[in-house]
Design a protein around this nucleic acid. Structure first.
Lengths: 206, 206
DNA sequence: GTCTATAGCCTGATAGAC
DNA sequence: GTCTATCAGGCTATAGAC
């Protein structure tokens, strides 16, 4: 367990870790093997010793980035408490994790645009299936009888979209730098979702 | 006014209209001048007669795509009625417009990832500033005293994220094909936002 | 305004020495 | 496992005829 977190000296893994920021910034077609070789500090031919082609390297890099995020998310789903506490905790920690992982966010966006079914399935099962199950359980415990899948999408989307739009918000009415702070975003999303909670309770009382 | 909507026979505009789907599908670096020339049905050299380089052509294509969306959105912001009716109408029509414009959605996502400040400012002023103003007015009329900018981002994000995640939802718990329908998405988002409305009213009564 | 032809560079990928 | 050298083809962009 502790060995997995040790700084990596294996060349194949170093290639992945150094190429992830490049792919996040410029996408698959925007990064050349030359760029990667230069960043890693080895020759192009050496890259091909570890991966048969660029596509395989990209997929391996995605798998690595998604595994990292997976462990990070998993570790924050276990907290016990009331349903309200767990909801608040999920939103807060997920928002903080996304704020801490700009590369993952960019890769996620790029995969949603360009990923084929195989890559999207990997992304789903490695990263999002478990938090989605937790969210659906949470919706059940909170007596939210709206579609749990749609609600889970909405909650993750609410959080992620605030980060996605960060670069354009300075040009939109009311946009201010404070709006980028994860604490502000988390509080806002929790307010929105709590609204649903109360709303459905009201309807149930009719 | 009617002339603007007439089918275009000007080569420079045909180039834009035929290249927009290519850029939407594969991004700037994923489309070559060869691809565009082939799709338009002219030679590469002819492309360079109308645009000085690939970058200029891409920016012109973005401007064209965003203008189209701008007029489409503007035409649905004028409807009168109570604040609740206008909210419902905005969500419904915006969701429908996004459902009808997959190319615009893809270009928007790509620009959020790769656009520089100049391009993002164009995107903001051409497309999003006006609906944002309408949403902020709406939030005021509904006595929502939460941050209007954050709420506007959240509403557009709620809608857009359901489309963004369409290809991956089949791999997530509870995902079903019906969830892609704009009517379902619009109703779900309206339910979420109405929840806020009731919630804030409750708080105001305390 | 459109064409053919091409320059000059960059691309992914390989061969073979060490 | 890493290197240098290289290939064949794609890339953006241009020249010059019609």
């Amino acid at each position: 367990m502790s060995t997995k977190k040790a700084p990596c000296t294996n060349t194949a893994l170093i290639i992945l870790e150094k190429s992830i920021p490049l792919f996040a910034k410029s996408g698959f077609t925007g990064v050349s093997m030359r760029d990667i070789a230069k960043t890693v500090g080895i020759s192009i031919a050496a890259l091909y010793h570890h991966y048969p082609d660029k596509q395989s390297m990209y997929i391996a890099a995605m798998g690595h980035a998604f595994s990292d995020m997976s462990t990070s998310i998993h570790s924050s789903l276990e907290i016990k408490g009331s349903a309200e506490e767990r909801l608040s905790n999920f939103i807060t920690s997920f928002t903080q994790q996304m704020a801490d992982s700009p590369d993952f966010r960019a890769l996620l966006q790029r995969e949603l645009l360009d990923g084929d079914d195989e890559r999207l399935k990997l992304l789903a099962t490695k990263v999002f299936v478990e938090p989605f199950k937790a969210l659906i359980d949470l919706a059940h415990d909170l007596y939210l009888d709206c579609d749990a899948h749609l609600l889970a999408i909405s909650m993750t989307g609410l959080i992620l979209f605030h980060f996605q739009t960060a670069p354009i918000r300075q040009f939109l009415p009311g946009g201010r730098p404070e709006h980028d702070a994860p604490e502000i975003i988390a509080r806002h999303v929790l307010m929105l979702v709590s609204g649903v909670f109360n709303n459905v309770q009201q309807e149930a009382e009719y």
